[in-house]
Design a binder for these strands. Structure first.
Lengths: 155, 155
DNA sequence: TTACATGCAAAATATTTGCGTAGGA
DNA sequence: TCCTACGCAAATATTTTGCATGTAA
């Protein structure tokens, strides 16, 4: 029941923020937010549109884009760039969970990670440059190690 | 004379790589590469096109895009994303000089920085995840600190 | 009721590509 | 000479927007 509880919390959080900002919580916005909560990957606008239409066939791509902008402004989701032409989106309702991405340049696979040392270092760097850190993006691009380090073997 | 020397080295490096790859070094490519060497900012394709046309009025936007792809493949330039819709480009002929960007979200100003600790940490993180780090992008977004830390004051 | 949100379609942006010609090696 | 690269214009891809209508509060 953990998953259900987390999802409801996320939607509650969406509703709370909407009210806070004096904005309406519509059926479309709920479906789009819920779809992002359920997503275990990093869909782009079009992929999201497809998924959302499985629930509500009438939702347009314009609404998807408008809702994504809206959710981003509310800081409920984050926009990412993995180097291909389109923006990708993911839920970021829990501010503690600021992870980053390791992208396999051969397979396109994306692994998320979190590293406290990195978080601390970035705040320190920004501070040394005379800035207050508001957001940051980090993407690592690489290829899988073979053998030695992990003892893994390709078939 | 330092600047002149560095610029020539960069263009030499371009010519060497072109030959290595069996590709032609054309007038357009030289102008585009030189313009990127001279750029002290991070121009997008259209800004680059404007600058390049001041030197050779006939260079088309298609050639700018094709040359940017080409130079990126040769790892002579790097593509960046600062969160607005377009890709930005910068010279990266010297592999040691792997810097990152601190972006002022109020003014749009971009400050470059390099931090050895960060470089080491990223390699370590990738390794721990089972990857060999090939490339990485880091952008910090923030607002200027007031007072305390730097003793700077707004007017 | 009444502003804000939506769907649709067109527009705006950003980038890529087909094709016939030009030009570097 | 020969093949790559070019300019042009059209195509594609992604995202935004104007407008009339719908709907949450």
């Amino acid at each position: 029941m953990n998953l259900v509880k987390r999802e409801q919390t996320a939607i509650d959080s969406l509703e709370a923020r909407c009210h806070q900002m004096g904005m309406r919580i519509t059926g479309q916005r709920k479906v789009i937010a819920q779809t992002l909560v359920d997503a275990e990957d990093h869909p782009d606008a079009e992929q999201l549109h497809e998924r959302v239409r499985e629930v509500d066939h009438t939702i347009s791509i314009a609404t998807v884009y408008r809702t994504l902008q809206f959710l981003e402004k509310l800081q409920l989701i984050a926009k990412r760039d993995f180097g291909d032409g389109r923006a990708r989106f993911e839920i970021s309702m829990t501010p503690r969970d600021h992870h980053h991405h390791m992208i396999d340049i051969e397979s396109g696979e994306v692994v998320e990670f979190y590293n406290q040392e990195l978080e601390d270092l970035k705040i320190r760097i920004a501070d040394e440059l005379g800035y207050d850190l508001v957001d940051h993006h980090l993407e690592l691009f690489g290829t899988r190690l073979r053998g030695e380090t992990l003892g893994e073997q390709e078939p």
